[in-house]
């Protein structure tokens, strides 16, 4: 038992995560071909437009659909369906917490691939200043609110405003880079289009194209560029507290060395500087666990599942991961 624990703590997280993400990606993007169907309430971007390949479907798509009801039906059947979906979403999320982002989300994975590519090309990553980092935090909530309100406003006139055109029925999907990228992996390039049928469609599809471009360039220069703005992350965070998987910190053991912060793709300052909170799953955290792998203090950071430590920072593990354990070959 102790041995297994040690093995886990000593693991090469980057490699483990790389393969885990590939498997998860394959299941979500191609799972459909082997009959996998995880339903349509997944707390991750398993794109609906992927057609038969998809091993499950994204809840954001469902959510927009659920909300596009006139108020009357919403009070009855519509509302009920909405709550059931939301509950399903919450249950899925309850298990893995934000690790859906760090380990499963295909959009996240694709960004990580771009990061790897950039790293291979020896190009430096960019960072936000702390000030702008603080400012952009709210954008994902604004997007979330928009994607919640717009469908409602299609079927209802809110506050006496005219109803919105039907072209906006899936406002987020229109601009989601996943809609174009994920199907492309199954050879389906149909989503790369500009829709001239109406003004709304034109604007939205153009916007989608633009955002795709920004997504690709952004994720290339900035690790997890898109995740900073992701409304899914905002939605998830609401349910994060009770979830089973946790990132815990024992602040008394922390030296504030900042190693974790430097490893963090989401530039989360608190991970290093907060020495009083126990739960360190912050709003932007993707539970990628890179910080645990980068922390050299024994038992300072840990991934905890339902009260059990499953992976924790150790000096030994750190040294192994940094390949500082054997110097024989570099002895002059």
């Amino acid at each position: 038992m102790l041995n297994i624990k040690k093995k886990i703590n000593n693991m090469n997280l980057i490699r483990f995560r790389f393969w885990f993400q590939i498997v998860a990606f394959a299941l979500i993007v191609y799972g459909g071909y082997i009959g996998l169907d995880l339903g349509d309430k997944l707390p991750t971007f398993a794109c609906v437009f992927n057609g038969e390949g998809t091993g499950g479907k994204c809840y954001v798509g469902m959510l927009q659909h659920d909300l596009k009801h006139p108020f009357e039906t919403f009070i009855g059947y519509g509302g009920f369906a909405f709550l059931i979906s939301l509950a399903m979403f919450a249950v899925w999320f309850w298990v893995l917490n934000k690790a859906w982002c760090g380990f499963v989300c295909p959009l996240g994975t694709m960004q990580d691939w771009l990061t790897t590519l950039r790293e291979k090309l020896k190009i430096r990553f960019s960072e936000y200043s702390w000030a702008s980092r603080g400012k952009i935090k709210s954008i994902k909530y604004i997007l979330l609110i928009l994607l919640l309100i717009i469908p409602v406003m299609i079927s209802n006139s809110v506050l006496g405003l005219p109803k919105l055109p039907n072209g906006l029925s899936m406002p987020f999907c229109d601009i989601c880079p996943g809609r174009m990228l994920i199907p492309a992996f199954t050879g389906n390039f149909n989503q790369f289009y500009i829709d001239f049928t109406s003004k709304t469609d034109l604007v939205m599809t153009l916007l989608g194209m633009m955002i795709l471009g920004i997504f690709l360039v952004g994720a290339f220069v900035k690790k997890r560029f898109f995740c900073y703005f992701c409304p899914m992350a905002a939605l998830q965070y609401i349910f994060s507290k009770p979830a089973l998987l946790k990132l815990y910190k024992d602040g008394s053991k922390c030296t504030k060395c900042g190693d974790c912060y430097r490893a963090c793709d989401m530039d989360i300052l608190e991970i290093a500087d907060d020495v009083t909170s126990k739960n360190l799953v912050t709003e932007d955290c993707t539970l990628c666990l890179k910080c645990i792998a980068a922390c050299p203090e024994d038992g300072c950071l840990e991934a905890n599942f339902a009260g059990k430590t499953i992976f924790e920072s150790t000096k030994e593990g750190f040294i192994l991961r940094m390949a500082m354990n054997n110097q024989k070959e570099s002895h002059e």
């Binding site: 990553f125 030296t255 190693d259 490893a263 040294i319 940094m322 500082m324």
Partner: peptide
């Protein structure tokens, strides 16, 4: 005590 922790083994990082 404190050790250098590198995320990307390129000169900048």
């Amino acid at each position: 005590n404190d050790m250098v922790a590198v995320d990307e083994w390129n000169i900048y990082d």
